[in-house]
Design a protein around this nucleic acid. Structure first.
Lengths: 190, 190
DNA sequence: AGTAACTCGTACACGGGTGTTCGACAAGGG
DNA sequence: CCCTTGTCGAACACCCGTGTACGAGTTACT
């Protein structure tokens, strides 16, 4: 996040290229090899190892970066007002990210130690939880199920939508509405 | 499904042992090697290749068998009467299977050609779809979302519950109720 | 301009999995 | 009882990925 100091401009360019290629490759194929990523970055394989000790560390950095970017985009969403409308807005901005980074996520699941993903996810997660809690306090969201479960349902429905889109069974134009209609119904107090 | 004819009793025993070990190993580790499975079956690795040309074919057979067993168990569930109650009964019997074969599923996703899983899944899928359609016809399930989407939601919520259980965040005793409460709310006509 | 940092390609060692072959040795079926 | 069918272990060839080492060449900072 802070500019990597004491590194030559040369190296910084390489790192940027590697990270850019990494996010692109891993988003296409979660098992992309280091050679593949290096080639896509226009860089020698050895150079990659010069900046990232492991493949795991590279995946970690790539994933962390993607989360950071996504989080920044999501923070622009206004969560004030009617919780249902706020949730709809949040879903609208979120599901595309879930779709885009679907493959990168599985890469992270393979390469990163358990729990690491959740740690990186903590930031974006918090905002969702807070919104759900506010909705419960205002009586529009159900309180007979724990918050973590509701958040999990939201994640999984979005993830499922991404799979359906990827399989060609769901039109991307419909996804947002479908998810919103489903989640609002599932969250509403009975 | 039909008894493998023209095979010696010896070989049939081996095949059974391999399949049993395979389902057990792949349910623990989706990337279990052939050696591992052979060892667990108390059989030489070569013997496995004597019955299954590929690792992929072995996974296919294992997965198909698991589906078959699960399907048989699910067919015992009574789907008559109030669609909501029928759905609750179906969920109650289904989610444990999803949980148990969670890992085997990812093994299949890695090893099998795309679409193959869906083909194997077709049997159990049909019953769910028919139930949902009946619920819609009777006015208790929503019709503003396509059936395939509702079925997908149900799958993903169950799958998500399995993940939460596996991560130690969800008590298995709660899972059934949580899933049912969520899905019924999501399916009900608004 | 000179020095330290960086990159590149090749090559190597290593581990791991897959699928096949071979020969010797049981064990079932007719 | 004999012959087919299986099984076993070891060995082999193969492919692929990871991580490291080396030496030569290039690029940036001061």
């Amino acid at each position: 996040m802070v500019a990597t100091q004491a590194k030559r401009a040369d190296a910084q360019r390489s790192i940027a290229a590697i990270l850019a290629a990494s996010v692109e490759c891993l988003s296409r194929n979660p098992e992309a090899s280091v050679s593949e990523i290096a080639k896509a970055a226009g860089v020698g394989r050895v150079t990659v190892y010069g900046h990232f000790p492991n493949r795991a560390d590279l995946v970690d950095a790539t994933f962390a970066r993607a989360i950071e970017n996504g989080h920044a985009a999501l923070e622009a969403v206004d969560l004030e007002g009617d919780p249902r409308e706020a949730l709809a807005r949040l879903i609208d901005s979120s599901w595309m990210l879930v779709d885009r980074f679907r493959s990168l996520l599985t890469a992270a699941q393979d390469a990163l130690p358990p729990g690491r993903i959740r740690t990186l996810h903590a930031g974006p997660m918090d905002r969702v939880e807070r919104l759900v809690e506010r909705g419960r306090a205002e009586g529009v969201f159900r309180t007979d199920l724990p918050v973590f479960w509701l958040v999990s349902v939201m994640h999984n429905v979005m993830h499922g939508a991404a799979d359906e889109i990827n399989a060609g069974r769901l039109d991307a134009d419909d996804a947002g509405d479908f998810i919103t209609a489903t989640i609002l119904a599932a969250f509403s107090t009975p």
